[in-house]
Design a protein around this nucleic acid. Structure first.
Length: 282
DNA sequence: GTCCAGGCAAGCA
DNA sequence: TGCTTGCATGGA
């Protein structure tokens, strides 16, 4: 059925939104996508003109799923207006990166989805991250539709045994996931507290979790907490900033500061345009 | 077989 | 504060 109240996205832009490295929970299905966020499982597709439609893969209450999906896709935001607030008029490299992806937006993922995904992301490529996240969900999450499993709870992950978690092939990330889960179970107010913090404090607080350094903290801020000024610097962004902005001899911390000043409150969206563009070799 | 991957933590200068 | 190294493993 139609998904109202969400800015349009062409099929190629929808693909970049869902499967471009923000979330690791979507896979191609027919002419659209099938995926999970939190405890929702849906199919989602875009018409050539950008109109979105979806179907709920579980339960009866399609209205609640539509509302959740609208929020996930930033239905209250205006991606074109947000993009226009970026300094594309004076920044040709940014303008070139933006052109292929009109309507690209930052997903508003559940905190746990972002934290689990990006702890797993350390030193792994996107296909592998998707495998790790799917494996964790299948093993520790509740089944919600055929072949689809909800994001595991912290409580369940906190008590995962070595034997249980080994088949997920997380490598050294297994200790990070379990350690973070234990901290979040121990401190049940953590998420609400960091949500109420200013960006800089949120970043420091997130970095107290095992497996969360500056880059993962910025990913969680941006994708899981709606802090749009987050500017994660990974290997791809590092290359872009070196080549296009001449920052070769800057540290990552300096690059983050540059991006915050140059791109402003929508720095995260700029980052996503640059990331998408770089990864496609544009 | 080699290189790389949406890095982090620990050790050290 | 900033640099170096080790880390588990699979994808390309």
């Amino acid at each position: 059925m139609p998904l109202d109240g969400v800015a349009p996205a062409t099929p190629s832009v929808l693909a970049e939104i869902l499967d471009g490295g923000q979330s690791f929970r979507w896979s191609p299905s027919g002419d659209g996508w099938r995926g999970v966020f939190g405890g929702e499982a849906v199919e989602l597709s875009a018409a050539p003109d950008g109109r979105l439609s979806f179907s709920c893969l579980h339960g009866e209450d399609t209205t609640a799923t539509a509302a959740a999906l609208r929020d996930y896709l930033d239905g209250n935001g205006d991606p074109l207006a947000a993009a226009d607030r970026l300094p594309h008029r004076s920044d040709p490299a940014l303008a070139a990166a933006m052109a292929p992806f009109p309507g690209l937006r930052i997903l508003r993922q559940p905190f746990a989805d972002a934290l689990i995904g990006f702890i797993c992301s350390a030193n792994a490529n996107i296909p592998r991250i998707k495998g790790m996240v799917a494996s964790l969900a299948e093993r520790f999450g509740e089944p919600i539709a055929p072949g689809l499993y909800a994001t595991p709870t912290w409580a369940r992950l906190a008590v995962a045994t070595d034997e249980e978690i080994a088949p997920c092939k997380l490598g050294y990330r297994a200790a990070f996931i379990r350690g973070a889960a234990r901290m979040l179970v121990e401190d049940s107010g953590f998420e609400a507290r960091v949500r109420a913090m200013p960006s800089a404090e949120t970043r420091v607080a997130l970095m107290t979790l095992p497996g969360v350094g500056p880059k993962v903290a910025d990913c969680v801020r941006l994708f899981g907490l709606g802090q749009t000024d987050g500017f994660p610097v990974d290997t791809w962004i590092r290359k872009v900033m070196d080549m296009r902005y001449g920052l070769d001899d800057w540290t990552n911390a300096q690059v983050v500061r540059f991006a915050t000043v140059h791109f402003g409150t929508e720095a995260g969206l700029a980052q996503q345009f640059l990331f998408a563009s770089a990864r496609r070799g544009l």
